[in-house]
Design a protein around this nucleic acid. Sequence first.
DNA 1: AATATATTTGCAGTAGTTTGCAAGTTTTGA
DNA 2: TCAAAACTTGCAAACTACTGCAAATATATT
Lengths: 249, 249
Amino acid sequence: MLKEERQHSIINEVELHNRVLLTDLAEKLNVSIDTVRRDVKELDEENLLVKVHGGAVSLGFANHSPQSNNVYALDKKIAIAKKALALLRNNSVILIDGGTTCLELAKLLPTNLKLTCFTLSLPVAMELLRKPNVETIFIGGTLSKDSQIAMGPSAIHALSEIKVDYSFIGTGYVDTEFGLTEFDWDVVQTKKAVINASKKAVLLCISEKLNSQHRFKTCSLNVINTMVTELEPWDTKLDAFKNLNIQIL
Amino acid sequence: MLKEERQHSIINEVELHNRVLLTDLAEKLNVSIDTVRRDVKELDEENLLVKVHGGAVSLGFANHSPQSNNVYALDKKIAIAKKALALLRNNSVILIDGGTTCLELAKLLPTNLKLTCFTLSLPVAMELLRKPNVETIFIGGTLSKDSQIAMGPSAIHALSEIKVDYSFIGTGYVDTEFGLTEFDWDVVQTKKAVINASKKAVLLCISEKLNSQHRFKTCSLNVINTMVTELEPWDTKLDAFKNLNIQIL
DNA sequence: AATATATTTGCAGTAGTTTGCAAGTTTTGA
DNA sequence: TCAAAACTTGCAAACTACTGCAAATATATT
């Protein structure tokens, strides 16, 4: 096997799984660990990956800095996603909804966490495929052009046949009185089906959305088991939600 | 054997397999390794391949940066996709399979063409969402990490409930005797379901794949209605396929 | 056709790379 | 803090590359 081939495989492996161990590479490529070490060192010097102790990580993974994709309040959404991670256990069966906050959750799933993960969202699915220990199942349906989410009867029907441990959902608007509301009727129908398909529903929601409403209602707040915001639990903005028997993270 | 001839063989070999060893070339071409070395050096200087220690790699392969997703024989695949477009009419209901050739078809769909389009492939779905007049329906299922395609029982079941006008499919290997074959068993099961879900099946296939086989059979060539390659219809490589009642584009 | 000129090819010796191993040092995580 | 794992360095064996040269082949000229 040529050196170039080997290095190409290493790049592929790193890009696919975000990280890789030198020992695994050596075994897979049938060369000594020294050779792999030298290869990774060269690739690091060419800025094709980042070498770390014991292995290598992809460039995208190494850059913890918020990249080119400018998401509104990305730092808050990342904070929310990190908190939500605490709910996950090995071998959980979960569902991740669409939206930028849920996408951050998908991105931040640890590579060593074993999960079965359903989703309706194309971008979330793309991220989940990068996680070596996550089995990803896409709920099929008609795709919405702007939200990139599967919707419609077939998606709702597919959801009726599953029951996941946790679903992580976003919402357009949330309010103590009206609950979760949306601008779009189809989105509401799909989110209802998602909530029905889950033992526990976890709402991921930045504080800007608290106390806002729109025209179509997804559900009342009492069907939500856990709400995750970027705020500290004792923040006064959350007071109104604490009386509703919701776990607040 | 003329020098030109030999160098042409070397280029072919490198492009087809992405890499080649000087020792193998010397043996195959019945010349000394020095001669091959000089040939490869010249070809490298002409930027027709990249010489590396012990062999040579193709241009696309050499630049193993993950960002520039270099597709093998992209120009041929684009040519195939353009030909396949001729089959489409407004309001057709079609299915586009995964694979790089099918992805090119999705990219090249005219923005004014009205279609209902099913797919199992995440990258194809991403492209279809960019087309304003295409209604995209994703066939859900367990997503494969390397092919980024929905597979498994639920995908096969979802396929059993539809019948599209045309399905555009790729294949790993194709041969007049053995038909369409694949490396992967699950892929074969899914492709079978795709073909059953379509009134007409269109095979998109670069000429390099003609007359090659692998271990699992998708279907015989007689269930394929149309075959699209980058070759001219009168190319002799297609002669063997013309006796099989297949439309050739 | 015969000769001169240029190119190509294979060989041999030398120079340079790559690889795996071993000994010693550093980092990591409990 | 300690033990395990990972890293560094130097080295020898195997492999690959380059150089110059002579024989073989091709091309051009008379």
